[in-house]
Amino acid sequence: MSAERVARASVTTRTDLLAAGVSLILEKGYNQCGIDEILKSVGVHKGSFYHFFKSKEDFGLQVVDYYAEYRLTNLADHLNDEDYPPLERLRRFFEEACRRHQSLGYRKGCLFGNLGQELADQSEAFRMRLEEVLVEYRRKIACCLREAQKAGGLRADFDADRLAGFCLNSWEGAVLRMKVAKNFEPLEDFLFLMFETVLKTSPTDAASLPEPCPRR
């Protein structure tokens, strides 16, 4: 086998392991997901695992990176779609995510939210990496909201960063509630309240709303 084919096979094996990690961690959680189970699902030996990953924690962190790259690219694709106004781009992103969760029977949830609940108090490395990913989500959403403000579709006096954080936090809470309720209602509530109430406030409504609380 040529060096090029070996390198290509190596990349494929690593990708297969990471994809299996995403699937199994979403299904069972990090602590309940064993290395042997991951290897069996891909059909490779333990030596292959330690060729790519120093430890299970290193593997888990690379799973986060792998999944984050995919999800953040998907978010960027939606938010950069100039065929739609900024707020419609954001809504379409969340609507697609809702359909994905519905197709899964309201199981599994969000990898980042799941790992945050499971590991944030156990592993500083996981906590910090998950926070980095969620901050990047918030940054991209805030950029979209600023674009909406510039276009006149959203109150200009809103703090876009703070509003983006509220949007993301509300979504993660809705996904958690969805897993418990096993139905669409929490996601529907999120879509309605976020896009028909919070983000639908027009500049003419500003005088009727209270001032936002100051940051601490």
Rank of each mutant, 00 (worst) to 15 (best):
A3F: 11
A7D: 10
A9C: 05
S10T: 07
R14G: 02
R14H: 05
T15N: 03
T15G: 00
A19W: 00
A19N: 02
A19Y: 00
A20K: 00
G21I: 08
K28L: 03
K28W: 00
G34L: 13
I38A: 01
I38N: 00
L39S: 06
K40V: 11
V44L: 05
K46L: 02
F49R: 03
F49D: 04
H51V: 06
F53G: 01
D58K: 06
G60H: 03
L61C: 09
V63S: 02
Y66H: 15
Y66M: 02
Y67D: 10
Y70Q: 09
N74E: 14
D77C: 11
H78F: 15
D81K: 11
E82S: 13
D83S: 14
D83K: 11
R89S: 12
F93N: 07
F94L: 06
E95W: 13
A97K: 15
A97C: 14
A97Q: 15
R100Q: 13
H101D: 05
G109W: 02
C110I: 04
L115D: 00
D121F: 14
S123D: 06
S123A: 14
F126Q: 06
R127Y: 03
M128D: 10
E131K: 11
I141K: 01
E147Q: 12
E147P: 01
A148K: 06
Q149W: 08
K150M: 08
G152P: 01
G153R: 07
G153L: 11
R155D: 03
A156W: 07
D157E: 14
R162S: 14
R162V: 14
L163Q: 08
L163G: 03
L163K: 02
G165Q: 01
C167H: 05
C167Y: 03
L168H: 13
S170A: 15
W171M: 08
E172H: 13
G173H: 09
G173A: 15
K179G: 06
E185P: 05
P186Y: 07
L187M: 15
L187E: 00
E188L: 14
F190M: 09
F190L: 08
L191I: 15
F192S: 07
E196I: 02
T197G: 10
V198A: 14
S202C: 06
S202I: 04
T204K: 10
T204R: 10
D205E: 12
A206E: 12
L209P: 02
L209I: 13
P210W: 10
P210Y: 12
E211A: 13
C213M: 10
P214T: 03
P214S: 06
R215K: 11
